[in-house]
Design a protein around this nucleic acid. Structure first.
Length: 298
DNA sequence: CAGTCGTGGCT
DNA sequence: TAGCCAAGACT
């Protein structure tokens, strides 16, 4: 049986996470000492639904080219989409550009520290606002990403996976577990994320290497399997998303505007291609030029 | 609130 | 092999 979690005496739990983090943390570029809040934001947006390994190279090129919000805001949004490469979900690039414009115009290029102000910026939701406030500014605030949610669900609830949507109970609990000192709470949050990424993994947990194993209800209960309703799977082949990806890849690789005939060669199904192209135009990821060709936005 | 939105690696 | 999933946001 796991040791019951005592909310009045969390120090040992905190210590276990912080000690483990100091020893096992990955040395990622956005964690190095001189990282600016803007660079933290760039990394967080790129990491939304995209694994660390695929972010490393685009991130390095991005911050070298656009070290400040003003630098990015000075260029066309299409350049952001092009530099986004194959990270996926390219609307993130568009939003990050819009965010850079807003930061430049409204905040004089300085990221706000307040989560509500951050939350109001394009592409910054609840998680990313918290991540910037905590990781860039050391504020005391709960950070609930998919890793932390899974770790706490297993540790405290004994459930293999968190609820499908973030609940108020999860927010309240995450807040209650936070160390009192802001600097300590920030490291606690990063530590939980890192445990989720390296140890308490979704499919292949490494409980033998877990620093909080002695408190874990899930491990203590023999790691019961998930038995709820089927979790929504993401199909991809043949979907509009794949079609959009193909079309955008053509535009990314071309410096000049592209005639419709070329796009036609990128996807066979006329109906689906037109639908996907319309949605790309709606999103502002693609524009039609004066001579009727297609291009990334100016 | 549930659906939509890319891409690729791992088991 | 075919799912499963990865530091979510937005509508």
């Amino acid at each position: 049986m796991a040791i019951r979690l005592d909310l009045d005496h969390l120090d040992p739990l905190h210590d276990a996470v912080l000690t483990w983090y100091d020893a096992e943390r990955r040395d990622l570029p956005w964690r190095s000492p001189g990282t600016s809040p803007w660079q933290v934001l760039v990394s967080e947006v790129m990491l939304q639904q995209t694994p660390v390994a695929r972010v490393l190279e685009p991130y390095a090129r991005w911050i070298e080219r656009w070290p400040t919000p003003a630098a990015l805001a000075a260029e066309p949004a299409g350049e952001a989409v092009r530099a986004w490469g194959r990270l996926g979900y390219p609307r993130r690039a568009l939003r990050l550009h819009a965010c850079a414009v807003a930061l430049t115009e409204v905040y004089d290029g300085v990221l706000p520290e307040d989560v509500d102000e951050l939350r109001a910026l394009p592409g910054i939701g609840e998680y990313t606002a918290a991540a910037v406030a905590v990781f860039a500014y050391g504020r005391r605030h709960a950070v609930l990403d998919t890793n932390v949610r899974r770790v706490l669900s297993r540790l405290v609830d004994g459930e293999p996976y968190p609820p499908s949507t973030l609940t108020v109970a999860e927010r309240r609990r995450a807040r209650a577990l936070l160390p009192d000192a802001p600097a300590r709470s920030a490291r606690w949050s990063i530590g939980l994320m890192e445990i989720g990424a390296l140890v308490c993994r979704a499919q292949t947990p490494r409980c033998d290497a877990c620093p909080v194993r002695t408190w874990c209800r899930w491990e203590g209960a023999g790691r019961p399997a998930y038995d709820g309703p089927p979790r929504r799977g993401q199909s991809y082949a043949g979907t509009d998303r794949q079609c959009r990806g193909r079309l955008l890849a053509v535009l990314r690789s071309s410096a000049a505007a592209v005639p419709g005939a070329v796009l036609r060669g990128a996807w066979d199904d006329d109906t689906q291609r037109e639908r996907a192209l319309d949605s790309l135009l709606d999103d502002g990821l693609v524009v039609i030029t004066a001579d009727g060709k297609y291009a990334l936005p100016a």
